[in-house]
């Protein structure tokens, strides 16, 4: 075997990794420390020069009220979404795995199906279902003589967006958890069954602790996705006035970079978001992960 063989296998991945991941990250860090200095009236060639500006882009983005609001909003969104999504995913996975449920094959396919629907299309479908003129909720409530809620009003729009992500995410996480439930050797709980333990206590005392590592992984991936929510609110925007152009942090980055043409503060903002996300995911891995993975 030639010594160069492994490098041959790894070359495409290394080149692409450098060009489309490593380089952009470094470039982003670089841009976040740069800015444009305008000389004189800012007219003519050379009047606008790129210079080092230190951390001023970071100061600016962290003190931008629109960005701060978007962060607060996304924290609320995550608190609402992630526990609900993972709780339901775990519940459905346990129910599928339980000997006492029926129709598991059908339910599994149906609950997993939304994963095949891209976030943009999911937002389109739900967006129309939220419109009072289309919504079945409105029809039913009006039939009963009750007022229908405005699902895209400023009070409820956060729930409306979270529901779309919930719909799209429960099935995938359910399949992840179900896969690791299936991997548990049944002998592990046969003994408990012989002792007369019911399905619920087997689930809580035996199954959940064993699938904890999978649950931690789904938690980390869900957090990463939550921080970066973009497609759902962007798609819903034409249907409501209650989603601003800076509704989520990533939307704020997009506005800075492509509407305001300020790639420097946009880079600083995106570095902040990425750093916070990384700290979060490593934090979860350290805090929960140690314990969870030590049990295997």
């Amino acid at each position: 075997m030639s010594r160069s063989a492994p490098y041959g296998f790894l070359a495409p991945a290394m080149v692409l990794f450098t060009a489309t991941l490593a380089l952009p990250i470094l470039y982003s860090l670089y841009l976040s420390l740069r800015g444009v200095q305008v000389q004189g009236l800012g007219l003519g060639p050379g009047a606008r020069q790129e210079v080092w500006v230190g951390l001023s882009n970071y100061r600016q983005s962290l003190s931008d009220p629109a960005f701060v609001h978007s962060v607060v909003r996304v924290v609320g969104y995550g608190v609402l979404l992630v526990p609900t999504m993972l709780g339901l995913a775990l519940l459905f996975a346990l129910l599928l795995d339980s000997r006492r449920s029926r129709g598991g094959g059908f339910a599994r396919t149906a609950i997993f199906l939304p994963y095949a629907v891209p976030a943009v299309i999911a937002s389109l479908l739900w967006g129309f279902l939220y419109l009072p003129d289309v919504s079945p909720v409105t029809d039913v409530l009006h039939g009963l003589g009750l007022p229908a809620p405005q699902l895209l009003s400023s009070r409820l729009v956060l729930f409306a967006v979270a529901n779309i992500a919930l719909w799209g995410g429960v099935g995938f996480n359910m399949v992840v958890l179900y896969t690791s439930l299936r991997a548990i050797p049944t002998e592990l709980y046969e003994a408990a069954r012989l002792d007369g333990a019911g399905e619920v206590s087997i689930a809580v005392r035996i199954k959940v602790p064993i699938v904890l590592p999978s649950l931690v992984m789904t938690l980390i991936f869900s957090l990463i996705a939550t921080v970066q929510v973009f497609a759902e609110p962007t798609t819903l925007r034409p249907l409501t006035n209650n989603i601003s152009t800076t509704w989520t942090p990533l939307m704020a980055v997009y506005r800075d970079a492509f509407t305001r043409d300020d790639i420097y503060s946009a880079s600083a903002t995106s570095v902040v978001i990425a750093a916070v996300t990384l700290v979060f995911s490593f934090g979860v891995l350290r805090a929960v992960g140690r314990r969870a993975f030590a049990e295997r």
């Binding site: 339901l88 519940l91 459905f92 129910l95 599928l96 339980s98 000997r99 006492r100 449920s101 029926r102 129709g103 598991g104 059908f106 339910a107 149906a110 609950i111 199906l113 939304p114 629907v117 999911a122 479908l125 739900w126 129309f128 279902l129 079945p136 719909w167 429960v170 099935g171 069954r193 019911g198 399905e199």
Partner: peptide
């Protein structure tokens, strides 16, 4: 403990319906 549970099955079907509504729509 292996007899069918109405509650377990009903919860699964509720989840399935929730996921199918937008597609049916």
């Amino acid at each position: 403990d292996s007899r069918p549970s109405v509650l377990a099955t009903a919860l699964l079907m509720l989840g399935a319906v929730y996921c199918l509504v937008p597609v049916a729509w």
